[in-house]
């Protein structure tokens, strides 16, 4: 699966996400995960429609173990919205685009 979105790693997470001036939506995913593949196009659409308001970052949990552990992630896809370095919304599993937008709208 290709994605033009920023791929965060354990090493870059602080810089890319926690220190970001914009709110950041992080998509924790893995290549073997069907629902991650289902939600990926929605995440990309949101990145496109919220340009300049929201940063969207993907993190492959297969390659990065530390950050998912820090945020207690035991299921994917998990989307977490960070604002000022703090998680403010968390969505586990596939959600419809309408529901995702509703959650994001509260913070962006």
């Amino acid at each position: 699966m290709s994605s033009h979105l920023i791929q965060a790693t354990d090493a870059s997470f602080e810089q890319e996400v926690l220190n970001s001036s914009l709110p950041v939506l992080v998509d924790f995913w893995a290549p073997w995960c069907g629902p991650c593949r289902m939600i990926a196009p929605l995440v990309e659409e949101i990145a496109e429609s919220h340009k300049g308001q929201l940063k969207v970052v993907k993190m492959n949990v297969d390659e990065n173990g530390q950050t998912p552990q820090t945020y207690g992630i035991m299921g994917i896809p998990t989307l977490i919205l960070f604002k000022g370095g703090q998680p403010v919304e968390k969505v586990v599993g596939f959600e419809s685009k309408a529901k995702l937008l509703e959650r994001i709208a509260k913070h962006v």
């Binding site: 893995a30 995960c33 069907g34 297969d62 035991m74 299921g75 994917i76 586990v92 599993g93």
Partner: peptide, 17 residues
């Protein structure tokens, strides 16, 4: 506890266990 140990997708989440 969904996403914190409760899962509906073994393929997705098995490796966390």
């Amino acid at each position: 506890l969904t996403g914190a140990g409760v899962s509906y997708c073994a393929v997705c989440d098995g490796s966390f266990f």
